[in-house]
């Protein structure tokens, strides 16, 4: 059956709904995040497993063969859909692996960050500025350094946890929830206050950004 013939067979209402579905899919793909390997990462493979060294934080991560395959294709930004198609993998599996590697600071998301929230933003998500390198010194504190601006911050263990949480976009409430899990003896109000102050200060200084919502 030719396409033209099929179209003729479609009642007008059905045709419109097909077009709407197609539009929604295109819009969805445009919204789908793109990821890329962070510059500060070195990979080494040992049999079925690979080790990832984060040069700025001097931390090691262990990844499986699936993740390693994905990383080989992430020297340039790709979305989960594109990667899944290129590597003949299941999109949900790819998406989950990408999110996991983002949280581990192996990958970074290509996203536009802002220093001010729109009036219309109800619950903005925050993300660490990819230009800032994170350098933990034992468990006592860490150095944040932006080589582009010479910006420097020294942060305490609570702020270190917030920083790690914001390797992937999170709302303020999600950050508070995460910190309450880690510091389970700290009063929630105190944690919420610390998180709010830290986010405000870091966004102002450009170390953390507000994720720009797709229009």
């Amino acid at each position: 059956m030719t396409r033209a013939k099929k179209r003729r067979e479609c009642p007008p209402l059905f045709l419109h709904s097909r077009l709407r579905a197609l539009g929604a899919r295109i819009k969805g793909e445009m919204k789908e995040p793109f990821f890329v390997l962070r510059d500060e990462v070195v990979l080494e493979t040992f049999g079925e497993e690979s080790l990832v060294l984060l040069l700025d934080a001097l931390e090691l991560r262990r990844i499986n063969a699936v993740s390693r395959r994905l990383l080989d294709s992430l020297a340039t930004p790709r979305s989960a859909t594109v990667l899944a198609a290129a590597l003949d993998m299941q999109p949900p599996v790819v998406a989950a692996a990408l999110r996991e590697m983002e949280a581990q600071r192996i990958l970074r998301r290509i996203v536009s960050l802002k220093q001010e929230r729109n009036e219309t933003m109800q619950d903005p998500t925050y993300l660490t500025n990819p230009e800032v390198s994170y350098r933990p010194e034992d468990d006592d504190g860490a150095i944040l350094f932006n080589a582009d601006t010479d910006g420097l911050e020294v942060i305490n263990p609570t702020a270190m946890e917030i920083w790690k949480t914001l390797a992937a976009p999170r709302t303020e409430a999600e950050v508070v929830a995460r910190l309450c899990e880690v510091f389970d003896d700290a009063p929630r109000e105190e944690v919420a206050k610390d998180v709010s102050e830290f986010l405000e200060s870091m966004v102002k200084k450009g170390f953390i950004g507000i994720v720009e919502e797709a229009s």
């Binding site: 010194e137 006592d140 504190g141 150095i143 020294v154 942060i155 305490n156």
Partner: peptide, 13 residues
């Protein structure tokens, strides 16, 4: 100075 030392005495940085 360590990060902890700078955090303890902001003027140190």
């Amino acid at each position: 100075l360590t990060a902890k030392e700078i955090l303890r005495d902001k003027s140190a940085g």
